[in-house]
Design a protein around this nucleic acid. Structure first.
Length: 590
RNA sequence: CGGGGCGUAGCGCAGACCGGUAGCGCACCGCGUUUGGGACGCGGGGGUCGGCGGUUCAAGUCCGCCCGCCCCGACCA
C-alpha cells in the first residue's frame, strides 16, 4: 500500500476527549474515527488488524471443530419473548418497529437465534455435538460508553455456541474453548488471566472471563497468588472470620446521638465493627411473569463488610436495583443511619450468611439517636433470604486456601459460559436421544469482541511515539520509508524496486512514497507502529544497502541491497517465533 | 439515572466576564526553495460560532429551553 493513496490521515494532536493511550493513538494514527458516543468507524489500517485478529480466532475455533456461519443482526421480538429476555433486559436492548409495526430487536447476542435454528436443524443425537460460530455486529446500548474502543455500544464479536447431548459434552467443549481463548489472546500478544465470573443476563451454570490486566480496566478482580483462585469482584467469595460464640444477651436500647456511620458507632460503643450490623436499602425490579414489580429490599450485613450489589441482585433474582430514596426508606418504617431489621413490614429482608454466626450485634433502633445492643437473628427478626452478599476486599482470605487476596483492575476481553438448557428449554429446542427420549440441547456460549481486543493490544504495545504492533496483528509487516531528497531519483527508484520485490516475495508493505520531509515520515512510521521499518536513502545507499529497524527495538543496521528479502524473511520468522513461544497450555480452572 | 465539564474550520485552541465586520497554530490547495527526526517563503480555500427561542439598533458573547460529546458514580456482557 502506498501511503500517498491511503484513506485517512494521521493527526499531530489527539482529540481532547481521548484520554487513554489506546484511544489517543488509534485516533491519531488514523485507525478509528468516532461517529457518536460508543460508535466508531473502522478505517482501513484498523480493518486490516481486525481482519488478522479475526483470522486468528477462525484458526483456533476451526481447530476445535467450529463451523463458521452468519446469523442476522435484526431479530423478531418473538424469539426474545420466548426466553423472556425481552422483559428482563432494560434499556440496553435496541428495539424498534418494522413497517408493519412488528417489534424488532437489534442483536445483543445470538443465543435466541441459535436456539431457534436448532429447532429445525437438530432432531437427533446423531447431529450432536456441534460447534457453530460467527463474527457479527452487536448492539448493546450501554448507559456509559467510554475509553475509546474499550467500551462501546456497537461492536463486532466472535461468538460461538456449542450444542451437546449431555453435560460431559458441554464440559469438553467448554474446556476446548478455555484453552483456545488463551491461544487467541497469546497469539495477539496480550497477557490475560481467566477468572470466575457472574453469569449475568446470560444465565447458566459456570462462566469465566478473560481479563487483560491494566489500570484502565473497569472490572476489579480478586486474585490469590498462593493457590491461583481468581474471580471478578462481582462474584468473588472469601472466608469470613467468625465472631466468637457467646450466649445470647437481652436486647438493650442505647442512646447514640449523631452516630450515623458504622465507624462512629463502633467507636462510641467501643466494639469492633464486626460486632455491628449495617443495613442497606435498595429498590429492586423483580420480574413476575411478563410484568416487573418493585420490591423494597432490606439487606443486612456485618459492619466490617460491604454489600456486593451483584450478589444481592442474584440472590433476589432482580432485573435491576437502585438505592432507595429517603422517602421510600421512611415509608417502610426505617430510619437511615439508625435502621434495623427489627420490626419492619412489607420488605424483602436479605441477610449475609455471616450474620447468623454473629451473636449480640449492635443494630439500629429505627429511631433517630438510638441503637439496639445484642440483636440476634431468629430471636429478634427473621430473613427471607440468607446467603453470601458480601463484597470481597483486598486482604480478605482466599475462599480456597485462606491466603490474602489482592485486587487488580482488568478489561474483559472474552468470556465463556456453560449455559445448559436455559435457552433450548425455553424455546423448545429438543433432540431425540439414543434411548428414544426427547431432551433439550445443552448449550454453551463463548464470546470475544474484536474491537476491544485491538484496543487492548494497543494498550499493551505502545510507547510515547506511537503504536508498536505485534507481527501477528500488524496492518502491514513492513513500513518502507523512501527519503527521496533533492536530486536523488536513484533513491526513489531503489525504493520502488524494493517495494515490488518484497511484494513479490509475499510481504505486506506500507510504502511511504509521499513528498514529505524525513521528520514527518519517521514520526508517522513510529506513530503507525509497523513491526519493521526499512529506510531507503542516500545515506543508506552510500553504506551499501537499506536501513533496518524493529519498532520495538532501538538498534538499526544496514542490510546489503541484495540480501533484503532473505533478511526480512529471517526477521519476520523470528518475530513470529517470539510470539509463538508465548502460546502455552494453561491448567483448567473449572 | 445522579454529579461535573465542554460544544467556535478536519485536529488543538483564543475570542465570551465587558455585545459592535470571527481569529491563531497544525492540517488542506497553488507556486518556488528544502530533504535523516513533525522545513521555509509567497499566495489561497474552508466556520449558519451545536440547535431553537428571547433581550437588543446590534448576539459567538446576555437570558431560557433543548441536543450532542467527555469525565466521575450508578449500571453492564
Amino acid at each position: 500500500m502506498r501511503m500517498s493513496q491511503l484513506f485517512g490521515q494521521t493527526l499531530r494532536e489527539a482529540p481532547a476527549d481521548a484520554e487513554i493511550p489506546s484511544h489517543r493513538l488509534l485516533v491519531r494514527a488514523g485507525f478509528i474515527r468516532q461517529l457518536a458516543a460508543g460508535i466508531f468507524t473502522v478505517m482501513p489500517l484498523a480493518h486490516r488488524s481486525i481482519t488478522k485478529i479475526e483470522n486468528i480466532m477462525r484458526d483456533e475455533l476451526n481447530a476445535i471443530g467450529g463451523q463458521e456461519m452468519t446469523m442476522p443482526v435484526v431479530h423478531p421480538a418473538e424469539i426474545w419473548q420466548e426466553t423472556e429476555r425481552w422483559y428482563q433486559i432494560g434499556s440496553e436492548m435496541g428495539r424498534f418497529k418494522d413497517k408493519n409495526n412488528r417489534d424488532m430487536v437489534l442483536a445483543m447476542t445470538h443465543e435466541e437465534v441459535v436456539a431457534d435454528i436448532t429447532r429445525t436443524e437438530v432432531q437427533s443425537y446423531r447431529q450432536l455435538p456441534r460447534l457453530i460460530y460467527h463474527i457479527q455486529t452487536k448492539w448493546r446500548d450501554d448507559p456509559r460508553p467510554r475509553a475509546g474502543l474499550i467500551r462501546v455500544r456497537e461492536f463486532t464479536m466472535k461468538d460461538s455456541y456449542s450444542l451437546d447431548m449431555d453435560w460431559e459434552g458441554l464440559d469438553k467443549q467448554y474446556r476446548n474453548h478455555y484453552q483456545a481463548y488463551f491461544n487467541i489472546f497469546h497469539r495477539c500478544d496480550i497477557p490475560v488471566t481467566a477468572v470466575r465470573s457472574d453469569v449475568g443476563m446470560m444465565g447458566g451454570k459456570l462462566a469465566h472471563e478473560y481479563m487483560y490486566l491494566t489500570a484502565v480496566g473497569e472490572d476489579t478482580l480478586l486474585l490469590c497468588d498462593n493457590c491461583g483462585y481468581g474471580a471478578n469482584r462481582q462474584i468473588a467469595r472469601f472466608r469470613k472470620n467468625e465472631n466468637p460464640p457467646e450466649d445470647l444477651k437481652p436486647i438493650k436500647k442505647v442512646a447514640t446521638p449523631d452516630t450515623k456511620t458504622i465507624e462512629s458507632l463502633a467507636k462510641l460503643l467501643n466494639v469492633p465493627e464486626s460486632r455491628t450490623a449495617k443495613a442497606v436499602f435498595m429498590i429492586a425490579d423483580i420480574p413476575e411473569g411478563t410484568d416487573t414489580i418493585e420490591r423494597f429490599v432490606f439487606a443486612v450485613i456485618r459492619g466490617d463488610m460491604d454489600v456486593n450489589e451483584t450478589k444481592l441482585t442474584n440472590a433476589i433474582k432482580a432485573k435491576a436495583m437502585r438505592p432507595a430514596t429517603e422517602e421510600e426508606i421512611a415509608s417502610v418504617g426505617a430510619v437511615p443511619g439508625y435502621a434495623s431489621p427489627v420490626g419492619l413490614k412489607d420488605v424483602v429482608v436479605v441477610i449475609d450468611d455471616a450474620i447468623p454466626q454473629s451473636p449480640n450485634l449492635v443494630a439500629g433502633a429505627n429511631e433517630t439517636g438510638y441503637h439496639l445492643m445484642n440483636v440476634n437473628y431468629e430471636r429478634d427478626y427473621t430473613a427471607d433470604i440468607i446467603t453470601d452478599i458480601a463484597s470481597a476486599q483486598e486482604g480478605d482470605a482466599c475462599p480456597d486456601c485462606g491466603s490474602d487476596l489482592r485486587t487488580i483492575r482488568g478489561v474483559e476481553v472474552g468470556n465463556i459460559f456453560k449455559l445448559g438448557t436455559r435457552y433450548t428449554e425455553a424455546m423448545g429446542s429438543y433432540f431425540l436421544d439414543r434411548d428414544g427420549q426427547e431432551k433439550p440441547i445443552i448449550m454453551g456460549s463463548y464470546g470475544i469482541g474484536s474491537g476491544r481486543l485491538i484496543a487492548c493490544v494497543a494498550e499493551e504495545h505502545h510507547d510515547d511515539l506511537g503504536l508498536i504492533w505485534p507481527i501477528t496483528v500488524a496492518p502491514y509487516e513492513i513500513h518502507l520509508v523512501a527519503l527521496s531528497g533533492r536530486g536523488t531519483s536513484e533513491t526513489l527508484e531503489e525504493a520502488e524496486k524494493l517495494y515490488a520485490e518484497l511484494q513479490t516475495a509475499g510481504y505486506e508493505i506500507l510504502f511511504d512514497d509521499r513528498d514529505e520531509s524525513p521528520g514527518v515520515k519517521f514520526n508517522d512510521a513510529d506513530l503507525l507502529g509497523m513491526p519493521i521499518r526499512l529506510t531507503v536513502s542516500d545515506r543508506a545507499r552510500s553504506q551499501g544497502g537499506v536501513e533496518y529497524k524493529r519498532r520495538d527495538k532501538q538498534e538499526k543496521d544496514i542490510i546489503p541491497s541484495g540480501d533484503v528479502v532473505k533478511r526480512i524473511t529471517e526477521e519476520i520468522n523470528q518475530m513470529h517465533a517470539e510470539i509463538q513461544a508465548k502460546v502455552v497450555s494453561i491448567p483448567y480452572d473449572g
